[in-house]
């Protein structure tokens, strides 16, 4: 993992794919999450496509762990809420006046599975693609470099922001601020902690902007890249196929809804 990104360095076929091919795959995952009709289809997509891709990318453990960490709480909350409140005929159990139904459970699990598929696609993209390469691929296709820069730095600079917060915390403690006591006291002490962090960051913005200008950020020249992103005819064709499949799925879903 580098900076605040979740990229994991590996030597794999998935890592070597052009970032836009993986973006197209992610788009297909989002379209599938929105369009596929039921739990078996969604789980089949996860097990039949995303999991093999994670194995191919030598990311199985990290991929499954991240899926579990993010989707796990949703599975729990969604099944409880849907199970108790979305109604249904088949009662599984009662909790006082509240009835937990099989239909509700299925609805909750289906919703969680949709999240799992969409998140799985995004995770594979982010864990196997260095963010600078993703932004390079996008800017080469006309994505505004300024927006790409903002997105990238927000990801990369986050750990440094955490370091600064730690320095302020240490400095305030050195001046006698008691941070270890109860929750109420901690909430009261938030201002002396957050204040310097925000003010310091705002002051840094000006120097950061100057440093960017010194690095010719607003130069009228057409930007080039140190690294060439490997691409191929096959991948370009695959991207079109994935994009068409995503569009077809969404159209099919729309058509089904209108019927």
């Amino acid at each position: 993992m580098r900076g605040g990104s979740i990229y994991i360095e590996r030597s794999s076929g998935l890592h070597r794919l052009h970032p836009l091919t993986k973006v197209a795959l992610t788009a297909l995952c989002f379209a599938s999450a929105a369009a596929l009709p039921g739990l078996p289809w969604l789980l089949a997509l996860f097990v039949g496509l995303l999991l093999p891709l994670a194995i191919w990318g030598r990311l199985t453990g990290a991929f499954l762990k991240a899926c579990l960490l993010v989707v796990g709480p949703f599975v729990l909350s969604l099944t409880i809420i849907q199970g108790f409140f979305s109604g249904g005929e088949t009662v599984l159990f009662n909790l006082g006046r509240f009835v937990f139904t099989q239909e509700g459970l299925l609805a909750g699990l289906t919703f969680a599975a949709r999240l799992l598929v969409a998140l799985g696609g995004t995770l594979l993209l982010m864990q196997s693609t260095p963010q600078p390469h993703l932004m390079q691929a996008l800017t080469e296709r006309g994505f505004p470099p300024r927006i790409a820069y903002v997105v990238l730095t927000a990801i990369q600079i986050f750990p440094s922001f955490q370091d600064r917060a730690q320095v302020i915390m240490d400095a305030q403690q050195a001046r006698g601020l008691e941070l270890q006591s109860g929750l109420l006291n901690r909430a009261r002490l938030l201002l002396p902690m957050v204040g310097p962090l925000i003010l310091g960051s705002v002051m840094d913005v000006s120097e950061r902007a100057m440093a960017l200008e010194a690095r010719a950020f607003s130069s009228p020249a057409r930007k080039t890249s140190l690294n060439t992103l490997a691409d191929s005819l096959l991948q370009r064709a695959l991207r079109w196929l994935l994009a068409l499949a995503a569009a077809a799925l969404l159209l099919w879903r729309l058509w089904s809804a209108l019927q």
Partner: peptide, 24 residues
């Protein structure tokens, strides 16, 4: 710290940042 672009993974890429902007 404020001079590091924050948009590159390695020192080599960081140094390249200005050169890329110049279109070299």
């Amino acid at each position: 710290f404020n001079q590091i672009s924050g948009a590159r993974f390695t020192v080599r890429e960081e140094i390249a940042f200005g050169l890329e902007n110049l279109g070299l």
